[in-house]
Amino acid sequence: MTTLILALIIGAVLFGIGLYGALSQTNLVMIMMGVELMLGATMVNLVAFWRFLHPDVYAGQMFVLVVMTVMAVEAAVGFGLGTARFRAKGSVEMEEAAELKG
């Protein structure tokens, strides 16, 4: 088994754990943790692709920087929404937020 496939399998398992967490948790911050794990798995795959397939093309590393920014944006917006929700309802439990369906 090549190192590339090993890294991709690790990324796949991390993505699965993140997806499980994002779907199974009821707390906003825990859901965000699941999403962060999925984005982390994406970054592992991107770095593995860059390292083992195209180490001379630095757009691969640039893509990782974009995903890191997406993580930061997700955290900023998530905590903003969480703070608004906590101020309004005193809780960030998403099962109590059914009215957000519209």
Binding site: T2, T3, L4, I5, L8, I9, G11, A12, V13, F15, G16, I17, L19, Y20, G21, L23, S24, R51, F52, L53, H54, P55
Partner: peptide, 26 residues
């Protein structure tokens, strides 16, 4: 359901990693 979704996503991604011909490795 969440566990099933996680396992299915993992298996699909692992299958892609194993079945695709990645070509020459640097």
């Amino acid at each position: 359901e969440a566990l099933a979704a996680g396992i299915v996503a993992t298996l699909l991604a692992v299958a892609v990693a194993l079945l695709v011909n990645w070509g020459t490795v640097a």
